[in-house]
């Protein structure tokens, strides 16, 4: 029974995430536009874009190789798998035993490297520029994520996302300085990983300021649809991750029935909406920073992660 419920919630979760991901992107765009006094596109617009792009045959540069053709699939696959591992409305999904934070970091790296290689493939200047910057940012973001994981591992005794969410949901953890610091770390990493302002601008049209977009300048048609979809998935995955760790209320317990799921779903939608609004407000209020200011930003996140761990050592030493 437990196994059956696990599989069922996993399938429902998959359907929810895969459908909702472009909607979330659309929602953030709409909210940002409203905050800036524009009317903004309909939230369904990303889905329309995807459909339109899929109908077009991709144009591939003559200088490109098979890497350009396979990279978007690898990236989408990695992003999909990572998104399946992050709980949305219920814990105890079928894939919960492998929902390890380090594995999620590895899958994100897989997608990132596929994208960087695709950027380098055609031998164009902007692709290389974007790839070099993206990999440099990741060099700071990844250790920050691992240090945040260290704090969770000390508090919950585990790096498994499902187990951490369970421990946090039980509320025995309390409000801690370390957790607040870890939240800041995760937020900074999420901003960098999703190429949002102030690290990168998802809507930029100036090639020299691009990081993420520069790598997919050559992509078109189906390939561009895949790249856009994986970007939406990553945004959803990160917001869901933050919601599951720091706003764990409402998550249905393992083995709970449909009523708890409905409650969890409502809470999840509420949380994602709130986070999307927060993201839109933050992006509207702040300016993009210089490229060489980013390492300071992410380096500060890294050190805060270290600080969080240091405070945990103190408090676990005291207990």
């Amino acid at each position: 029974m437990q196994a059956f419920i696990g599989i069922l919630t996993q399938l429902l979760h998959a359907a929810l995430i895969l459908i909702a991901a472009p909607l979330l992107t659309g929602l953030v765009r709409l909210l940002k536009a409203r905050l800036m006094g524009r009317r903004g596109p309909h939230p369904l617009q990303p889905w329309h874009d995807l459909r339109k792009l899929l109908l077009k045959r991709p144009v591939v540069a003559e200088t490109a190789s098979a890497v350009t053709i396979f990279a978007p699939w690898v990236a989408v696959g990695a992003a999909m798998l990572a998104a399946l591992l992050v709980p949305s409305f219920a814990r105890g999904m079928a894939l919960a035993p492998i929902a390890d934070l380090i594995l999620i970091a590895g899958l994100l790296a897989l997608g990132r490297i596929a994208m960087a290689l695709a950027g380098l493939d055609a031998g164009t200047p902007f692709g290389g520029l974007g790839a070099a910057r993206e990999m440099a940012f990741a060099a700071f973001a990844e250790p920050a994520l691992i240090l945040a994981t260290l704090s969770f591992a000390i508090i919950a005794g585990n790096t498994n996302l499902d187990a951490i969410a369970g421990a946090f949901q039980d509320g025995a953890v309390g409000v801690r300085v370390s957790l607040a610091l870890s939240l800041l770390v995760l937020l900074a990493v999420a901003v960098a990983e999703n190429a949002r302002i102030p690290v990168d601008n998802p809507a930029t049209h100036l090639e020299l300021t691009m990081v993420h977009e520069a790598m997919i300048l050559e992509a078109s048609g189906r390939h561009l649809a895949l790249w856009d979809y994986q970007a939406s998935l990553r945004l959803t995955l990160w917001l869901a991750l933050i919601a599951a760790l720091f706003l764990p209320f409402g998550l249905a317990a393992p083995g709970a029935g449909p009523l708890a799921w409905a409650l969890g779903l409502a809470a999840f939608l509420l949380k994602m909406g709130g986070l999307a609004l927060a993201l839109a407000v933050f992006e509207s209020a702040i300016a993009k920073m210089r490229v060489f200011r980013v390492p300071e930003f992410l380096g500060a996140a890294l050190l805060l992660g270290l600080l969080a761990a240091v405070f945990l050592f103190v408090s676990t030493g005291l207990a």
Binding site: A172, V173, G174, V175, R176, V177, A180, A319
Partner: peptide
């Protein structure tokens, strides 16, 4: 100690 609200809030403010 941990888990008690007064302590936690004081701790958070210090942090």
């Amino acid at each position: 100690t941990y888990g008690q609200l007064p302590y936690d809030i004081a701790h958070m403010l210090g942090g």
